[in-house]
């Protein structure tokens, strides 16, 4: 009996939280369909829904372009970090050399440096290289936060069964072959977990794209939405429509990928 009561209370609280979390998103979608004349009416059904704001939003913001830009940059940073960290973790676990502790410290020590604090030198560097407003300029400064990737991959590689590696050596496999053919396939769960985490982190990055891009060519989602803050005031209707449009691919993707994304965290062995 008490268990039933506890269950009911728990669900009530959880549903309340879920409602509070989902509400801004739902309200955005509702607003995006409201005609301008009833935009400020709290009643969601004050007037027949319209697609006007979507038309206006699509005319002002190249939605596909900014979503693609954000996805490309996030994927490039994720793949880049994974590649660098996998190689480094291999060196750190499969070789013994004098500088090993120092190298490990240098890589994991990046966790001590907050990336946003480096905007001034990053900006100077990227502008000197002529890489402002380019994908390379967006990706490069974000590559170095390798701490998490190196830490987790090293941990997993160290736990890799020695017998397998030895057997491969006996069979004449080179170290590179061992890494690519034996270790990487077996480290898939942690690789995808780290990849997804880095992807999400880059997807959420606002400050650097704000500084490194101008115009829409390389703008990310968050930077692109600023076309609705005009000198003639904030265009709420189109802004809500655009927010819906940029969130849409992600939400659809997430619904399909939900198991994998959640599993990635579940299996990453972050504990």
């Amino acid at each position: 009996m008490r268990r039933v009561a506890a269950r009911a209370v728990a669900h009530a609280c959880l549903l309340l939280i879920a409602g509070a979390i989902a509400f801004p998103v739902l309200w955005t979608v509702v607003t995006s369909f409201k005609p301008t004349s009833v935009l400020y009416d709290a009643n969601p059904f004050a007037a027949a829904p319209t697609l006007d704001h979507y038309q206006s939003a699509l005319a002002s913001l190249p939605v596909g372009r900014v979503v693609l830009n954000t996805a490309l940059v996030s994927a490039a940073v994720a793949v880049g970090q994974l590649a660098l960290a996998t190689l480094a973790a291999f060196a750190l676990t499969q070789y013994r050399f004098r500088a090993r502790p120092a190298a490990f410290a240098a890589l994991v020590g990046t966790a001590l440096v907050p990336q946003p604090a480096l905007i001034v030198p990053h900006y100077l560097m990227v502008s000197r290289l002529g890489l402002l407003d380019s994908y390379a300029g967006l990706v490069l400064p974000q590559l170095a936060s390798l701490a998490l990737a190196v830490f987790l991959l090293r941990q997993h590689m160290a736990a890799f069964p020695d017998e397998l590696i030895e057997a491969a050596h006996v069979a004449g496999a080179s170290n590179l072959t061992i890494l690519l053919r034996i270790m990487v396939p077996n480290l898939r769960p942690v690789l995808s977990a780290v990849g997804i985490v880095v992807f999400i982190q880059t997807w959420n990055e606002y400050l650097w794209p704000l500084l490194a891009t101008s115009g829409m060519d390389r703008a990310t989602v968050q930077v692109g939405l600023r076309v609705f803050q005009t000198e003639q005031g904030q265009a709420w209707g189109p802004l809500m429509a655009a927010a819906t449009l940029v969130a849409l691919p992600l939400l659809i993707g997430y619904v399909f990928m939900q198991r994998r994304v959640t599993d990635a965290f579940l299996r990453s062995g972050i504990d």
């Binding site: 994927a75 490039a76 994720a78 793949v79 407003d133 994908y135 990706v139």
Partner: peptide
Amino acid sequence: FRAGVAAVLATALAAVAACGDTGTAG
């Protein structure tokens, strides 16, 4: 999983290609 990796690699390649593009075009 392979399909996923392939997709990610493809996007990465596209990104690299695009970088090269801007690099040369100026």
